[in-house]
Simulated scan of single mutants.
Amino acid sequence: MSSSSAHPWSPTRWAENGSVRLAFDQLAEGADGEPLLLVTGLGANRHWVPDGLCRMLAAQGFAVVRYDQRDGGESTHFPPTTNRNPISALFTKRGAAYTAEDMADDAVAVMRALGWRSAHLWGVSLGGAVAQRVALRHPGRVRTLTTMASVPGDIAGLRTMRNIRMGTLAKFARLKFPDTPEGAVAAGVAVSALLASSNRPFDERAARASAANNIDSGIHDPQAQSRQISAQWHGPPISAITQPTLVLHGEDDPLIKPSAAKAIASRIRDSRMVLLPRVGHELPECAWGIITTELGKLAAVSHHRPQPPAN
């Protein structure tokens, strides 16, 4: 086995945004390709993005980097706040811990640490909203924008609820597991089952193996998730986004309604929406080919567009 196969990712590196430290790593394969920054979802660390998918992106011509958002993975975690679960965070005072602008600036901090003037951005779930905000706040840093399984990045509160299946969010918020490695594995299996497509058999054995290889307490940390959800956006609407944009969404997403993808695509000029069959709120292997092909097409479009200066 080659060293790149045994250790496909670089050692953990760190970026800084003020007092916040952000953990990231880079795929060894395709490191000389076009920069692609992966933005993770609610509470999840960067290891939830499948290695096989990242290798396919590298084969498509991308240099793949993933990072842990603040309050996730190895990045800086914040003190407890009054919001105790993600549902209450939708209704209570927002932005107490940090703002959505801060989270957008985190992505740029990672780019600076890498020496990247700009990159293609792909955000999943909450990461999709963050990526939209990066495109608004730092347009010169974003070559293309891909948002998947996300809500529009400029909505909050009750307007957010229109796009979310509250029954699933309630189940998600009720998950209780001990703060132990065994509890994290059990949480990983439960979350994977909850977010999977109902039109594919759920492979519990594979989910358990994946969770055992990625002990991530963030997926059952309601406090951290609440702080991420509570980060309020004060910037312009997503209709101001001008970068080539792709909107991906699973047809069977049990958490975020496909209408959210339609809303994003309708408001970003010249964006394109692709619904993924037999896909829930997840990144299953059956969708990897479509995802990598679509991101490759989008990158090709960007080659013919002038880039604004990076800030």
Results as ranks from 00 to 15, higher is better:
10 S>L: 11
10 S>Q: 11
14 W>I: 15
18 G>D: 12
23 A>R: 01
24 F>K: 04
28 A>P: 01
32 D>A: 15
37 L>T: 02
43 G>T: 02
44 A>I: 06
46 R>T: 08
50 P>E: 12
54 C>R: 00
61 G>M: 03
61 G>V: 03
63 A>I: 04
66 R>A: 11
68 D>K: 06
69 Q>K: 06
73 G>L: 06
78 F>I: 06
79 P>Y: 12
80 P>H: 12
82 T>M: 10
89 A>G: 07
91 F>E: 14
95 G>W: 02
95 G>Y: 04
100 A>G: 14
101 E>Y: 08
101 E>T: 14
102 D>I: 07
103 M>H: 03
104 A>P: 04
105 D>N: 15
109 A>M: 11
111 M>P: 00
113 A>T: 13
120 H>R: 09
125 S>F: 01
128 G>S: 08
128 G>T: 03
136 L>H: 02
137 R>L: 15
137 R>P: 04
140 G>V: 07
141 R>T: 10
145 L>R: 03
150 S>Y: 00
153 G>T: 04
153 G>L: 03
156 A>F: 06
156 A>L: 08
159 R>G: 07
166 M>H: 09
166 M>P: 05
174 R>E: 11
175 L>W: 05
175 L>N: 11
176 K>G: 10
177 F>A: 01
184 A>M: 10
188 G>R: 01
196 A>F: 00
198 S>F: 01
198 S>P: 02
201 P>A: 14
202 F>Y: 14
202 F>L: 09
203 D>P: 02
204 E>N: 07
205 R>L: 10
205 R>P: 00
206 A>Q: 12
211 A>W: 00
212 A>E: 13
217 S>F: 15
222 P>G: 08
222 P>T: 09
224 A>V: 07
226 S>N: 05
232 Q>D: 11
234 H>F: 08
237 P>E: 13
238 I>D: 02
238 I>G: 01
239 S>W: 05
239 S>E: 14
240 A>Q: 14
244 P>M: 07
244 P>V: 05
246 L>C: 10
250 G>P: 00
252 D>V: 05
252 D>E: 13
261 A>G: 13
264 I>P: 00
265 A>T: 05
265 A>C: 10
266 S>R: 11
270 D>E: 14
270 D>F: 06
274 V>F: 02
279 V>K: 00
279 V>G: 01
282 E>I: 04
282 E>S: 14
286 C>F: 04
293 T>A: 14
294 E>N: 08
294 E>I: 04
296 G>H: 02
301 V>T: 15
302 S>Q: 09
304 H>E: 11
305 R>I: 15
306 P>E: 09
306 P>G: 11
307 Q>A: 15
308 P>R: 07
308 P>W: 05
310 A>M: 09
311 N>I: 14
